Computed example of a mutant assay.
Amino acid sequence: MARLPGLAASLFLLFLTPAVAETLRLATFEVEMTRRGPGLLLRDISSGKDSQTEAVAEVIATVRPDVLLLTGFDYDLDLVALRSLRDRIAARGVDYPHLFALRPNSGWQTGLDLDGDGRIGGPGDARGWGRFAGAGGMAILSRHPIDHESVLDLSSLRWADLPGALIDEADLPREALGVLPVSSTGHWVVPVVLPSGTRLSLLAFRATPPVFDGPEDRNARRNRDEIALWRHLLEGRLSHRAPKPPLVILGNFNLDPVDGEGRRDALNALLSNPTLVDPAPVSTGAARAARMQGGANDLHHGNPALDTVDWPDDTGPGNLRVDYVLPSSDLTIRDAGVFWPDPEQPGHRAAQDASRHRLVWVDVDMP
């Protein structure tokens, strides 16, 4: 009994000690690492001589995210290409022991003539546009364990079943209504287990571009609904249980909130959702590129420092903000940025060679 006062004092001091927060760097990167056929990406990565894949590894090793979503990355069943990329990053001193990927909808054939060209089996006849099954998929690299058993894959949710869907039944073969999902690539809820035991849910996706169609505007409508899916999930409108905070929505939304083409209501609803935070990451490189290039960029109304992709400004839409990391509002934002260095800064050439998109990162504190 004589030891109780000491024990009580220790407990008292424990409760007076401030909790130490875990700081995590969360990132998304549209790497455009898709090739014209299966196995070609693995060939390029494993050679160690492909300038694009080496630049991607260099960018990732420079920014050093704790958890990273890759979009536009060809999928293979055993994740061989992903492991090969992980090895190229590890050679630069950054290790990702935990990997995750699922088969994407891109290139997964429906057996229907969805694009109306009179043939079956083309890229436009798949669940999501793709030259082969697995083309342009998604993958996660993490320093922390992933709870594979608790992953929620919403990629098979039928477009026609989404609340308020903008699907046009007259635009598609009747049979398509029963098989065409909302997701052109995938929608995943992936729990990451942190050292404290806290679980962070990654709401990962890659939406179709809202262009490359005709007056039916199918791609713009689908892009809008791919983004809207997350709001429906968080607000309990789907049959699946909404993930609890802390969480983060991240990926290639393929839509700018101000400029370029597309239907913005679902995006702006997410950006203004009180349960989420938009850190609005910027870069000096993006602002400078927009000033130097002119063209379409001169017609834009949004802040060019927020841009995340360097698309042609003379024949295309110019630079836009299309890649996002949106943490839940219970997390403390410490810092955020887009890895788009100025020409005089280190990493400029690697960022250019890696992808037209730039890596977007956000630092959050998790108490």
Results as ranks from 00 to 15, higher is better:
T53V: 10
L70W: 05
P97H: 12
L320C: 00
G337E: 09
V80I: 13
D310A: 15
A287R: 06
R86C: 08
A220K: 09
A220M: 06
A2R: 10
G262F: 04
P274I: 00
L13W: 10
T62I: 01
P346S: 11
P65A: 00
A165N: 09
L70R: 00
F132K: 10
E58H: 14
D298Q: 03
G285M: 01
L141K: 01
P246K: 00
P346C: 13
A2F: 02
L40R: 10
F205G: 13
H232I: 07
G107S: 10
R143P: 05
D310K: 11
L7V: 06
R35P: 05
S183Q: 07
Q293P: 00
A266Q: 07
R218N: 13
E58L: 11
V190A: 04
T110D: 15
V151S: 00
D213C: 04
D125Y: 06
A55V: 12
R291N: 08
R35E: 15
V151A: 00
N105F: 12
S272F: 01
L69R: 02
D259V: 08
R263F: 05
E261N: 14
V309H: 03
L77V: 01
L162I: 04
P281L: 08
A160Q: 07
I45M: 11
V67H: 01
E169G: 05
F132N: 09
G111D: 14
V20H: 09
S155R: 03
P367V: 09
P145D: 03
W188A: 07
M366P: 03
P327D: 15
F15I: 09
V20T: 07
E226Q: 02
R291H: 11
G6T: 08
R25V: 05
G136C: 14
V309N: 12
W361Y: 02
N223R: 08
A350T: 06
K244R: 06
R86F: 03
L41H: 04
A126D: 06
R206P: 10
L16E: 00
R127E: 12
L320W: 09
T185D: 13
T185Y: 07
G136P: 13
D50M: 10
S47A: 08
G316I: 01
G302R: 08
W311H: 09
P65S: 05
T275H: 02
V277P: 01
I140D: 11
D78C: 12
I45C: 04
A21R: 09
G347T: 01
A57E: 06
V31L: 00
L326W: 07
R64L: 00
A21E: 10
P243F: 14
W361K: 00
A305V: 03
E54A: 12
A220I: 04
Q293C: 09
R358Y: 06
N268E: 11
L166Q: 14
Y324C: 05
P145H: 03
S84A: 15
L77D: 02
N254Q: 15
W188N: 08
E149N: 03
L177Y: 07
G294V: 11
P163W: 11
G295F: 07
L68T: 00
P341Y: 12
P257V: 04
V63M: 05
Y75G: 01
P104W: 14
S183E: 04
P163R: 05
Q109S: 04
P343I: 02
L40K: 09
L270H: 11
P145G: 06
L11Y: 06
D335H: 12
D171Y: 08
G48A: 04
V192N: 13
H348W: 10
A91N: 10
P38C: 13
L200C: 13
G236F: 05
